[in-house]
Design a protein around this nucleic acid. Structure first.
Lengths: 225, 225
DNA sequence: TATATTTATTAGGCTAGACTAATTTTTAAA
DNA sequence: TTTAAAAATTAGTCTAGCCTAATAAATATA
């Protein structure tokens, strides 16, 4: 994690972040056009910025392979993502913000610069592993847990999925799962999302209908069917 | 407090803030040169920005009277100061940052935009009245009136008080405080005032006795218990 | 393979916000 | 009141980061 101390501009940081995300999303070739679309700006602008970031050794670019973050560039991107997700936890848990509100504020907070900030915040929040949207929070050393899809964040009404894991492993949660007859492999259909409190109505297996809370849904790791 | 919802640029916000501070410091005529000095930039740049802010109805400017914040401009400035000081409290109390470190980070955090942010943060912190440097935190409605009490000026022999802030934030002073084991919240009893040189004998916590100078005592902001 | 289409790149503009240098206005001193 | 000094203003540059339009290159299709 060297060189994170050299301040990047807001714009540079946003480019690094978006490239990181595109990569994480599995895009094999990250092109200027793809970046422009993700940033909602112009490919010509992107080409300029790519040059600048290559110059700064934060990116590599070969027209055949597209854009790739260097180690240094990746470290910066991961730190931004880490800060973003930590701030989201803070806004939700400490300031009582809602689910939908935290992202936009975290977009601003993720750019706050100070060497120890992320680690101090992390500690203050009790070293959370996931942000309120179910995305894993990179650790201080930059490791990112596998990105899970959760019932809450990744499923839409009418979709079918299969339970592949749980995030929370507390007895209380596991017991509740047992009661609902949900286990690894159980098929679930999302019937209705209730925006008010992010709860949802689901169909468990073929016949059992249940209404489950936001907290429940974000702890259920699923694969879409 | 109307119109705070129209986003200002970072630079605009910094101008409004500095003008607010110059006014608070008692500068009767706030000139382009004074602003340029405070911002460490060029008077020519300041003239440009003044025009822009007058245009936006955030400032009034008459060459004879200098610059003045409009109601709207002042509301924005106060909110920035409020956010700055609240974030300083957060950084010190929740993240464990030192006195000297919080200012620079708060300079960044004060620009985070969200309607409810200041109020939510305020509530989360327990509605603090002072920031760690002893400056009063403007209330939600923009009042900044509170004059602080110092150990020197406002305490009498036998009285108990609690340290709420410091005025001087020089390393020398902060180091001395550390040595005496005085921090935010430390309880102090005034045992004896020595009229000769305005020094005083105090009891720090339960057992530690110390004699402190006038200069020391006037830099310690306290609340009477 | 030749052609059409999509993508990348270059060239040239634009705006915000800074700067320098030159000029005008204001203030202070003789 | 005249002159000297300081402050304000104007004019013209510069950079970052965006834009559009034009061109070049790559990819896909006939």
């Amino acid at each position: 994690m060297a060189g994170l101390n050299i301040m990047q501009t807001l714009s540079e940081e946003n480019y690094l972040k978006i490239i990181y995300h595109l990569d994480k999303q599995g895009l094999k070739k990250i092109t200027p056009t793809a970046i422009a679309e993700a940033l909602n700006n112009n490919p010509a602008s992107v080409v300029d910025m790519i040059k600048k970031l290559v110059e700064k050794k934060l990116l590599q670019y070969e027209k055949t392979k597209g854009v790739k973050l260097t180690e240094k560039g990746k470290d910066i991107a991961v730190l931004i993502v880490r800060k973003h997700r930590l701030w989201e936890v803070f806004l939700l848990e400490k300031l009582g913000y809602g689910w939908e509100e935290v992202h936009d504020i975290a977009e601003q907070l993720e750019h706050i610069q100070h060497a120890e900030l992320a680690d101090r915040l992390d500690k203050f929040l009790g070293l959370p592993k996931y942000d309120p949207h179910g995305d894993p929070i990179p650790t201080a050393s930059g490791e990112t847990a596998i990105t899970y899809k959760t019932l809450l964040a990744d499923m839409d009404e009418g979709k079918n999925c299969k339970v592949v894991a749980v995030k929370d492993t507390s007895p209380a949660f596991l017991q509740y799962l047992k009661k609902l007859d949900i286990g690894i492999g159980t098929k679930i259909q999302l019937i209705e999302k209730i925006p008010f409190d992010n709860s949802m109505v689901i169909l468990i297996g073929k016949t059992t209908r249940a209404t489950v809370s936001k907290i429940f849904a974000e702890n259920l790791v699923v694969n879409e069917l």
